[in-house]
C-alpha cells in the first residue's frame, strides 16, 4: 500500500535552497583559501629549517 506522505522536516523554498548553496560555496572557497594562506605562512615562518631536524 502506498501513501502520499509529506516529507518530514523543513522544506526549503527555491530561494532558500539557492542562497544556502551560495553560502556553502562561499564558505568552501574561504576555507580553501585559508588553508593555502596558512600553509604559505607556515612555510615562510619555518623556512628552510623545516628539513633541519635530527633523523
Amino acid at each position: 500500500m502506498t501513501t502520499d506522505r509529506q516529507p518530514d522536516g523543513v522544506v526549503l523554498t527555491p530561494e532558500q535552497s539557492k542562497s544556502r548553496r551560495q553560502r556553502n560555496i562561499a564558505i568552501g572557497l574561504a576555507v580553501g583559501f585559508l588553508v593555502l594562506l596558512f600553509y604559505a605562512v607556515t612555510i615562510v615562518k619555518v623556512g628552510p629549517g623545516v628539513l633541519n631536524r635530527p633523523l
Binding site: 523543513v10 526549503l12 523554498t13 530561494e15 532558500q16 542562497s19 544556502r20 551560495q22 553560502r23 560555496i25 562561499a26
Partner: peptide, 22 residues
C-alpha cells in the same frame, strides 16, 4: 535546531546571500 521564537510555526531559514554577509 531551528529558532522558531520569532515566527512561531515558521522555520527561520536564512535566505541571505554571501553578498549580504559581505
Amino acid at each position: 535546531f531551528i529558532d522558531e521564537s520569532r515566527a512561531p510555526g515558521l522555520a527561520a531559514i536564512s535566505a541571505a546571500s554571501p553578498g549580504d554577509y559581505l
